[in-house]
Design a protein around this nucleic acid. Structure first.
Length: 270
DNA sequence: ACCACAACCTGGCCGC
DNA sequence: TGCGGCCAGGTTGTGG
C-alpha cells in the first residue's frame, strides 16, 4: 500500500509524538515481523532507547536512537504505524506494540503480516542498495538520462525497481507514465530525450502531489493519526478502467505488466 | 541484465 | 450462507 508519499506523510506525523520519547516496552504478536536481529535481541536493544529523529528513505521509515542504532520499518502492503494511548482498544492486527514513556504507544498494524522491522547499527545494512530519492534537490533532470542508460527492460518495472529509484510503487508509476504520455511497456532504451525529460518532471509532480494530498487511500492506508489520504480523488488512470481519459476521453484500460496490474490510456500513451 | 514465477499473508469481492 | 477463486498499493529469492 504505502509508497513514497504515504510513508512521507506518516514520517511527518510521527515526528511530534515520537522525537524525545523513550521506548519503555515492546509487545510482540507476530514474531516474523522482526526481520533482524532475533526477537529477543530486538527487544533488548530497543527498550530504554530514546528517539532522536524520524525520517523516510524510499518506502522505509528510519528512527534514529540514542544508542546510535537505527530502528527501520517497512510497511509493505498493508502496514500502518499508529500513535495510540495505551488504554485505547487494540486492533487484532496490531502485531507489534512499542510502549512509550508518556503513556502512549506506537502500534505496527499489519493485516497481511508482510511488514518488517530491523534494528541495525548502520542503516545501509538495510537500505544500502536503494536508488536515488526522486524528490531530492540534488537529483536533477540532468541526472535522469544517465540513470536510464544501459537499461533495456520495460519502463514500468524499472520505475518499480527500488535499486533504480527509491519510493515509487504501482500507483505513482502508472500516474507518472500517464502524465509523461509514455506506454508502460516501452523499453527504457527507446525513450527519446524529450520523453525522458517529461518522465523526470512527471515523477516529481505526481509524488509531490501525493504528499500534498497526504497520500492515497483505497482501503488500507492511514496516517499516524489514523486519517485517510485524499490523493485517490486526484488520480487520473490508476484503478479507473473504462472511465474516460482526462486528456482525450478514450476509456482507460487495465493490463498486466511485469506481473502488476497496470492502468493507462491506449491513445495518449505510445 | 532481464524475465517469469513463487513465496510471504489475510481479507474483500465475485460468481455459483 | 457457504465456498472456491481471484485480487490487492511490496519485496525477495530462484531458475532460466
Amino acid at each position: 500500500m504505502p509508497e513514497l508519499p504515504e510513508v512521507e506523510t506518516i514520517a511527518r506525523g510521527l515526528r511530534e509524538p515520537l522525537v524525545g520519547r523513550r521506548f519503555t516496552g515492546l509487545r510482540v504478536g507476530w514474531e516474523n515481523l522482526v526481520a533482524r536481529p532475533t526477537v529477543e535481541e530486538f527487544e533488548r536493544g530497543l527498550v530504554g532507547q530514546r528517539i532522536l529523529g524520524v525520517k523516510r528513505r524510499g518506502k522505509y521509515l528510519v528512527f534514529a536512537l540514542s544508542g546510535g542504532e537505527s530502528l527501520i520499518v517497512h510497511l509493505r502492503m498493508t502496514g500502518r504505524l499508529l500513535i495510540k494511548n495505551s488504554g485505547d482498544q487494540p486492533d487484532k492486527h496490531d502485531y507489534l506494540i512499542f510502549e512509550l514513556d508518556d503513556g502512549r504507544e506506537l502500534r505496527f498494524n499489519n493485516v497481511r503480516k508482510l511488514g518488517r522491522v530491523y534494528l541495525v547499527d548502520d542503516e545501509d545494512e538495510v537500505m544500502g542498495r536503494l536508488g536515488p530519492e526522486p524528490l531530492d534537490d540534488d537529483f536533477t533532470s540532468a541526472d535522469f538520462p544517465a540513470l536510464l542508460s544501459g537499461r533495456r527492460g520495460m519502463i514500468k518495472p524499472l520505475l518499480l525497481n527500488q535499486r533504480f529509484m527509491a519510493g515509487i510503487g504501482n500507483i505513482y508509476a502508472d500516474e507518472a507514465l500517464f502524465a509523461a504520455r509514455i506506454h508502460p511497456e516501452r523499453k527504457a532504451d527507446t525513450l527519446t530525450a524529450s520523453e525522458i525529460e517529461r518522465l523526470y518532471h512527471a515523477i516529481r509532480r505526481v509524488l509531490a502531489q501525493g504528499i500534498r494530498n497526504r497520500g492515497t487511500t483505497f482501503s488500507d492506508y492511514l496516517d499516524a493519526e489514523g486519517r485517510e489520504g485524499r490523493n485517490q480523488e486526484y488520480l487520473r488512470v490508476f484503478r479507473r478502467t473504462g472511465q474516460p481519459c482526462p486528456r482525450c476521453g478514450t476509456p482507460i484500460e487495465r493490463t498486466v505488466v511485469g506481473g502488476r496490474g497496470t492502468y493507462f490510456c491506449p491513445k495518449c500513451q505510445k
